[in-house]
């Protein structure tokens, strides 16, 4: 287990390193730079001074190396767009995206898995209805889902449209802040969760249906265990293998989806930050966002793989016992 973890850790670090370096390099190569808007109002010499003071004219390699050196010390440099250290900016926004992602995953799991168990083990009209809804759910990607939900919210006023908190939220107590969050989270989280829930439902349904046909399940029934117990205690844990494997894959699409949802619902998360940083050519902020994103990606996939290994004794981590 230890070696496996180490290997995955190494992979994660490599991912973060490559992704953030690539982002830094690409942004450096991009036309225009962060000083461009201000430079228009300045003379040529003043503009050169400004660029020099912002460090925009340094050759790439020394700049890259000094940035790397900073990153090891958890100093991600300074954002020129927001006039703050990148680290603090990243911390806030990444947290917001994480909150959204966690709520979305929770919702998807709480909706998809039970429904999947239901449709995989029963027959009848309800099953067909749920399967049809699931098919529709898969066909509602986050872009469409968030637009539809925003429309619904704007029309009915049931939920606040967009944003993460109500402003003026300076002296809110914890309970009030949480309540405020609880009102703003459902819309974006649902937009993300719908296709994931549908995918989970279908996979869970298939997996548990085939697991229910395994001999050991029939054996348990023969022993006198009632139907629901035999499904939940014997068939379900086995069916979890492909389902948990899906979580690892879903992390990537969770990120992609969260970007769209953040833009449509003005959720102040990592995706929106990276977009603004890219447009403004804010070097270190882009690299920081890329690094954070890669980190969460690697961490997420590692977690789900570990979960998979933990729950199914048939999965090995490549080590002999």
């Amino acid at each position: 287990m230890g070696r496996y973890l180490l290997r995955r850790l190494g992979f994660g670090l490599l991912l973060v390193f490559v992704v953030s370096s690539a982002a830094l390099l690409l942004t450096r190569l991009a036309p225009g730079d962060i000083a461009a808007p201000q430079c228009l109002e300045l003379s040529a010499e003043k503009c050169a001074e400004l660029r020099a003071s912002l460090g925009l004219n340094r050759p790439f390699l020394p700049q890259y190396l000094s940035w790397l050196g900073g990153v090891i010390r958890f100093d991600f440099g300074r954002s020129l767009l927001y006039s703050r250290p990148v680290g603090s900016l990243l911390g806030e926004r990444a947290l917001n995206t994480a909150v959204l992602a966690i709520f979305a995953l929770l919702a998807a799991t709480l909706i998809g898995i039970p429904l999947g168990i239901y449709t995989g083990t029963r027959a009848g009209i309800m099953r067909s209805i749920v399967r049809a809804i699931s098919l529709i759910g898969i066909s509602v990607p986050p872009l469409i889902g968030s637009l539809a939900l925003v429309f619904l919210a704007a029309r009915t006023g049931w939920l606040p449209v967009g944003g993460m908190t109500s402003s003026g939220g300076l002296e809110l107590t914890w309970a009030a802040w949480f309540a405020d969050l609880a009102r703003h989270v459902p819309l974006p989280a649902l937009a993300l969760a719908i296709p994931m829930a549908a995918t989970l439902e279908r996979l869970q349904s298939e997996a548990i249906a085939s697991a229910s046909h395994e001999p050991f399940v029939a054996a348990s029934r023969a022993r006198g265990v009632d139907r629901s117990r035999s499904i939940l205690h014997h068939a379900w844990p086995v069916s979890l293998r492909p389902v948990l494997g899906l979580y690892g894959v879903m992390i990537g699409s969770l990120f992609s989806g969260s970007f769209v949802v953040e833009v449509v619902t003005s959720w102040p998360g990592l995706g929106r930050l990276m977009f603004d940083a890219l447009k403004a050519r804010d070097l270190f902020l882009v690299a920081g966002c890329a690094a954070t994103g890669a980190f969460f990606l690697a961490a997420g996939t590692l977690l789900s793989d570990l979960l998979l290994a933990y729950t199914d004794p048939r999965v090995t981590t490549g080590e002999s016992r």
Binding site: G162, G163, S166, G168
Partner: peptide, 12 residues
């Protein structure tokens, strides 16, 4: 757009 929504909801 966000500005207007906040004006409507009374936050601004």
């Amino acid at each position: 757009n966000a500005e207007l929504v906040r004006l409507q909801s009374g936050q601004l």
